[in-house]
């Protein structure tokens, strides 16, 4: 057979190969012992720590967020409340303003009407006074005329009355104009 040594027992242990194997294993063991496993273990511990810390941090942040949320909620509610109060106040105010304005307007209107009434009343009074005075004078004049002129006939009588009435009329117009 090519490239093959003489056959030995397969259960052979060659000293040189055994030593080479031990050296190779020693190299790998040294590397693992000094370098790989301690670092990996340390790193795993660190990771466990950081995960635990992370969980704690997350819990803290959650609590903080909850608190903040509560605060915001309170603030919001307060804002809602104050808004509603403002709104009510404003509507009350506006109602009051409207009522006041209405009252004022009514009062004014009443005042104007009253003034007008008073004026009218005064005018009427005045007119009545004047009329009374004039009617008295007129009645006295008429009576004097009726009594002064002998009433011969009915024609003359009616003439007198007509004249009087005409005078009266013109007089009243004159009087009205004077007024």
């Amino acid at each position: 057979m090519l490239g093959l040594a003489a056959e030995e027992n397969v259960l052979r242990i060659h000293i040189d190969e055994l030593v080479f194997g031990l050296i190779a294993f020693a190299v790998i063991f040294a590397l693992v012992y000094r370098y790989a496993v301690p670092r990996v273990t340390k790193m795993l511990d660190e990771r466990a720590d950081s995960i635990e810390g992370g969980i704690e941090r997350a819990k803290k942040a959650e609590a903080e967020a909850e608190e903040l949320r509560q605060q915001f909620k309170e603030k919001l509610e307060e804002a809602h409340r104050s808004y509603a109060a403002e709104l009510q106040k404003a509507s009350e105010q506006s109602a009051a303003i409207i009522a006041e304005a209405r009252e004022e307007a009514q009062a004014e209107a009443r005042r104007i009407i009253e003034a007008a009434h008073a004026q009218i009343e005064a005018d009427r009074q005045q007119a009545m006074e004047q009329l009374r005075a004039e009617i008295g004078a007129l009645s006295a004049e008429l009576a004097a005329r009726i009594v002064g002129e002998t009433l011969a006939d009915s024609a003359a009588q009616s003439r007198v009355i007509d004249r009087f009435l005409a005078e009266l009329e013109s007089g009243s117009t004159q009087q009205a104009e004077v007024r």
Partner: peptide, 24 residues
């Protein structure tokens, strides 16, 4: 055969003749 488990040593590293229980 089991001969495949007995590769012969390279000529530059063949000290198996000189030392007992070695393979080179």
């Amino acid at each position: 055969s089991v001969g495949i488990f007995f590769p012969s040593p390279w000529s530059w590293g063949d000290y198996s003749e000189a030392l007992p229980y070695t393979s080179g």
